[in-house]
């Protein structure tokens, strides 16, 4: 299994008065090449689950193995190393740095890897070409439309050529046609052999033909299988 969670629990602010159990003994296995949709009401723990899959933080307890790496109880430094190697992120609010150009934004992950500006630009060009953003290369990101931004965000997620793509509500700010375009792109990544985990409560996403499985999260628990697979 590429993603393997066993009895994973995440408690925010443990021991404090505002303690929250966001995930409670979750168990989940995702194979290579799957495209999984995580859905559930607001506050159910979707983002928390995706964060653990995306090596952003390790679970409070339980065992999590991502791409063959055990990430439970790992210091941030190593989580970051695994994240660089394994994960590409797409966010609901794009998370672009406003004062940089599109090209600069999508090549940000390459900076701490010590890759020279010329190689960075070459890699960026390839991806911009692929996502039809070549003509927006030198634009400041705040001059882009929402659809273009999300395309740029997907391009950025691919800059390190990661095996896993994690997308947290990627279509929340987009209208129907653009949403479909984004899910199509994610499905295309699946076809390339990547594993895609996407959270959403948008039926356009969960109903997409490329989806191999739908996971329902409620109040920090994963419900028994409901869709597909």
């Amino acid at each position: 299994m590429l993603i393997d969670l066993e009895a994973v629990t995440k408690i925010y602010n443990q021991g404090q008065i505002n303690q929250v159990s966001a995930l409670r003994s979750v168990r989940l296995a995702v194979a290579k090449g799957e495209m999984v949709c995580v859905q559930g009401p607001s506050g159910s723990g979707k983002t928390t689950l995706l964060s653990i899959i995306g090596c952003i933080f390790s679970p409070t307890s339980g065992r999590a193995t991502i791409g063959g790496r055990k990430i439970s109880r790992l210091p941030d430094h190593f989580l970051t190393l695994y994240r660089r190697e394994l994960i590409g992120f797409v966010f609901q609010n794009y998370n672009m740095i406003d004062h940089l150009t599109v090209l600069e934004n999508i090549t940000l992950p390459l900076i701490p890897l010590g890759i020279s500006p010329r190689v960075r630009e070459k890699k960026g060009d390839l991806l911009l070409e692929k996502f039809g953003l070549r003509h927006r290369k030198k634009f400041a990101v705040n001059q882009l439309s929402g659809g273009e931004l999300q395309r740029a965000a997907i391009a950025r997620a691919l800059i390190n050529d990661p095996p896993i793509i994690v997308a947290d509500e990627p279509t929340a700010h987009l209208d129907g046609i653009l949403s479909l375009e984004v899910v199509d792109m994610l499905a295309a990544l699946k076809k390339e052999g990547r594993t895609v985990v996407v959270s959403s409560h948008d039926p356009i996403v969960s109903g997409h033909p490329g989806m191999t499985r739908i996971i329902e999260v409620r109040d920090g628990l994963i419900m028994p299988n409901i869709g597909k697979a």
Binding site: D76, H77, T80, R83, F89, N95, I97, L108, P109, I111
Partner: peptide, 16 residues
């Protein structure tokens, strides 16, 4: 603050 968060999630270490 947002910029730092983005850089971190994109694989920048605290030391970077």
């Amino acid at each position: 603050r947002k910029e730092v968060g983005i850089l971190k999630i994109l694989g920048w270490q605290t030391s970077d």
